[in-house]
Design a binder for these strands. Structure first.
Lengths: 343, 343
DNA sequence: CTGAAAGCGCTTACAG
DNA sequence: CTGAAAGCGCTTACAG
């Protein structure tokens, strides 16, 4: 290789170079640069100065190998959650990646294709030991999750959980969030309230449904089966929303995107929002602000969730026996214009 | 560490384990698993079989260190391009990450904070030699780019370029795309056509503007300065769009998001789109489908751009003298409902 | 406070 | 076709 031709820098600088230059050992250099005991302050400063001057950069690979740790965390997102317009999980990934960086780790994103997910093909980064653990972002098929668990590598579920396995997870408090949103509708005078979402699709949707249901129960309101409307099939692919003959006065939607779609559909059918029908979303993602009217919705605390997930996975990497259980992070209602006060 | 307690797997399996088990040397194991010459087919198969049985995973760190390469590429996105709703570059990152994986590389995302960008703080992954090269995604401040170039590490610009430096870049063909979009408006009978965008903000916007201008020239149409309208300040922060007294019959917007905002503004001012004013966007991102009407726009070929960028950066990592220059990838017009035929 | 020795798990010449 | 030796660039005991 002829790198020298371009930058006149034939070789990267190593600790040995610094050591020779200063007439000390590499051990001393290592200790100094890592601020460990056993080097006089004077010498430490001299070594650091020299490192700076010579543009020394540590070779993390060597350090990693010695420690048997890569300081990388894999983040797996099923491809079906990252469609054309879906950006929620990618934003999440951005947050995770930033938090990981603060902890001196790096994230490696793995978009899990539907095919690999079905056929239990684990990511290359697993087989190459490029990561110390995984954050699974978004509900992954059970068979795949089980295979991952089998490997014994540290794992955290993020934004979903699975009762049948004993894995730590960080989820938003879907139940309580939906409960509060529904309470808000009741406070605004709504008595007939529907729910949009396939409750067999993901645990998040199921919990949001149950929070909605709890609010109805507490307020002695009817749960009308006609008002529980599917928005996707069991695998998560959106289907047309079939509106019932008679509409409730408000809908709790399992996510903003569906609320957005519902509003279009209502408008096409001649209804106004929130005039005729009030709508609340969930997630506070882009759909909540591009919808017209803008959506009253529940904001997910992505930052807090990412922080907890990252801390947990690092703790598990450091000690495989650590267990954090199922951590729920509360959201916060964002009040906008999609809910109407009902006399 | 007490990992053994949980999984009864006290230690990762190494080549040495396989070698001992089969009574051969680690050299032979290495050759077999890497399909190199110098091992009988018979033995190769036996070794691979054993590796499978024992759940052997290569330790990439060791390999990497030996080769002096991490097989990671850093992707830097300025934070200001990843706001609440902006997902374009994150989608791009998803694509890049998938392509990198196909080439046995991994991507490490670095969201560059405004502060670090201003103060020339290079990413930690650079100082730790965690990556072999960088893809710079989105126009980064010049001082920062120059500092990165100084380091001598291989770099590719993606989705922008900088004339003042001699760096390889992969961009969409903004000029030709805007030219074609504008031609389409002219074909539909429009004679007075405006442009929305700050042409001093990024090279992309500038090129789109010039493509628009070329179409006007070719069609002998007036470039009316009143119809060139700013949408953001020089650093990219959106500002209010000030509509002129008299409107043109169509607008070329420098991106979908701005087209989306323009349509809101036009509607507030009592105009209909495309009835009174036609609008075309650029990017074919989420704003093009949530806009009402949906936008006629130019689709960026993210996949192709990512592929070329990844191939280029890998080529440069392998040989620092490689240069690919400025590669332009063509887009494709997506026809939707925001353009009106004008008698 | 300082350093010689050993080792992390591979791969690359080179010798047989 | 097979393997002993050396080395990648660090860090971790341990000895002085």
């Amino acid at each position: 290789m002829i790198r020298g031709l371009v930058f006149l820098k034939s070789r990267e600088i190593t600790m040995r170079d610094l050591a020779e230059k200063l007439g000390v050992s590499t051990v001393t250099v290592s200790k100094a640069l890592n601020d460990k005991e056993g080097v006089s302050d004077e010498l430490k400063i001299k070594i650091k100065q020299m490192a700076d001057d010579m543009g020394y950069r540590i070779n993390n690979l060597a350090k990693s190998m010695k420690e048997g740790r890569s300081y990388n965390i894999g983040v797996i997102i099923p491809q079906r959650f990252t469609g054309e317009v879906q950006s929620f999980y990618l934003r999440f990934y951005q947050e995770i990646s930033t938090v990981l960086d603060q902890f001196q780790y790096s994230g490696i994103l793995h978009i899990l294709s539907e095919e690999d997910e079905v056929h239990d093909v684990l990511p290359r980064i697993y087989y190459e030991k490029k990561v110390d653990g995984f954050i699974l972002l978004g509900q992954i098929y059970k068979n795949y999750v089980e295979d991952m668990i089998q490997t014994g590598i540290p794992i955290i579920f993020l934004d979903f959980y699975d009762n049948h396995t004993d894995i730590d997870s960080v989820v938003m408090d879907n139940f309580y969030g939906a409960y509060e949103l529904t309470n808000h509708l009741v406070d605004q005078g709504h008595q007939e309230i529907g729910f949009i979402g396939n409750i067999f699709s993901t645990s998040s949707i199921q919990d949001r449904y149950l929070g909605y249901y709890k609010s109805l129960l507490e307020n002695r309101l009817q749960l009308n089966p006609d008002y529980i409307i599917h928005d996707r099939d069991d695998r998560g692919t959106f289907i047309d929303i079939h509106l019932p003959e008679k509409l409730p006065s408000a809908f709790v939607c399992n996510c903003d995107q569906v609320a957005f779609r519902l509003i279009s559909q209502l408008r096409k059918s001649g209804y106004t929002v929130p005039g005729d029908v009030s709508v609340v979303g969930f997630d506070n993602d882009i759909y909540s602000t591009v919808a017209d009217p803008q959506l009253t919705t529940l904001e997910v605390d992505m930052h807090e969730m990412s922080k907890v997930a990252v801390k947990s996975i690092i703790a598990k990497v450091q000690n495989h026996t650590v267990s954090v259980g199922r951590v729920q992070i509360k959201g916060r209602i964002v009040y906008r214009d999609s809910v109407h006060l009902r006399g």
